[in-house]
């Protein structure tokens, strides 16, 4: 979104851009107009010309991030990859004699690729994503458009309120909703009873709806904020032109605003898909209310958790993690490619 804001300022300052181009970072945003002609650091670093020095200085700002990234992402990924090609076995007997670790090559991956429960879980979250992700995007977009149409002051108030669910940690949100859903003490059951509906949110058939509602509730605020941010960057003269041409607010929203935020929609959809494929804490808690439906390997992430920390097969768990990461990566790439092509 910082990208959009940047484009926005650039757009407002420079009179040129008429067409609604939504550039990705690295495209046009070069440090224009900052050429420090006056003080070249020639004396201090003689081997570099000022351009290189400038780049090094600029790049150095990323070092703290890169260090953290390496320590907390790259190193663990490396360790996981190493872990996933070994196998740990007991030395036999009653299992009291310790364990041996041996190299297993790609055995763990081969087992993972044909692991029925794992892929059943993958299919489950995939179908779930098919419903929840579009629903979240549509709702968020609608809210963002409404906020955009409202006066700034009103919008600011709603923006905070709508973002509140996002600030609640997932586990806490789930606990809160479990009490809301509770057939005995929750307010929702009597509420639906007023309309003659007997709804049990804890039943096996409703558990998807219960979790989906919770997921949408948690994600809408964040997604809405991103889309709202993107809407702010739409040049207002475009609206004026449209209004002069007699376009209704609805038409403006559909034909101008929505195309403008398409880039952001792709981003939020991707984030949403990644989050959904990694579905974990909600089913883990809902497991208690419908254990016959939500088994320990209900989603890929739950299965990985079970393998790692219950079964105790870290090697296999890391192999499954790598497979899950690949699936998420491929899904993201496909969606990104697909939506990008449409754009051009």
């Amino acid at each position: 979104m910082s990208v959009n804001t940047h484009d926005n300022h650039a757009g407002l300052r420079e009179p040129v851009p008429g067409s609604p181009h939504d550039r990705r970072p690295g495209g046009g945003a070069s440090p224009r107009g900052h050429t420090p002609r006056g003080h070249t650091p020639r004396g201090r670093i003689p081997r570099w010309n000022w351009r290189t020095a400038q780049s090094v200085k600029g790049a150095s700002f990323t070092f703290p991030f890169l260090a953290g990234f390496a320590l907390f992402v790259l190193v663990p990924v490396g360790m996981a990859l190493r872990e996933s090609v070994y196998t740990t076995k007991s030395t036999g007997g009653l299992g009291f004699g310790g364990q041996t670790v041996s190299f297993a090559g790609l055995d763990n991956f081969a087992a993972g690729l044909v692991d029925g429960p794992f892929w059943a879980g993958m299919l489950r979250v995939f179908l779930y994503a098919l419903v929840v992700v579009p629903l979240t995007q549509v709702l968020s977009l609608a809210l963002a458009l409404l906020l955009d149409a409202a006066r700034r002051r009103t919008a600011a108030r709603f923006r905070i309120a709508l973002l509140l669910p996002y600030m609640v940690p997932g586990i806490v949100a789930t606990m809160v909703w479990i009490y809301q859903y509770s057939p005995t003490v929750g307010p929702l059951t009597p509420f639906f009873e007023m309309f003659g509906l007997d709804v049990n949110f804890f039943s096996s058939s409703m558990v998807w709806v219960s979790m989906g509602n919770l997921a949408v509730w948690g994600a809408v605020g964040f997604t809405m904020l991103i889309l709202y941010g993107a809407l702010q960057s739409v040049p207002h003269e475009v609206f004026e032109a449209a209004r002069l041409d007699g376009a209704s607010e609805l038409r403006i929203a559909w034909s101008i605003k929505v195309p403008f935020v398409r880039g952001s929609l792709v981003l939020t959809s991707l984030l949403s898909i990644i989050g959904t494929l990694q579905l974990f804490d909600q089913p883990l808690l809902f497991r208690a209310v419908t254990p016959e439906t939500i088994t320990r390997d209900f989603t890929p992430a739950m299965m990985i958790y079970d393998q790692a920390f219950k079964v105790g097969n870290l090697n296999y768990a890391t192999a499954l993690s790598v497979i899950l990461a690949l699936v998420v990566g491929v899904a993201s790439a496909i969606i990104y490619r697909f939506t990008n092509r449409e754009e051009s």
């Binding site: 479990i178 009490y179 509770s182 005995t184 003490v185 208690a288």
Partner: peptide
């Protein structure tokens, strides 16, 4: 009844 929903259980 689930233990997860303890208020309901106790009630």
């Amino acid at each position: 009844q689930t233990y997860m929903d303890k208020p309901a259980l106790y009630k």
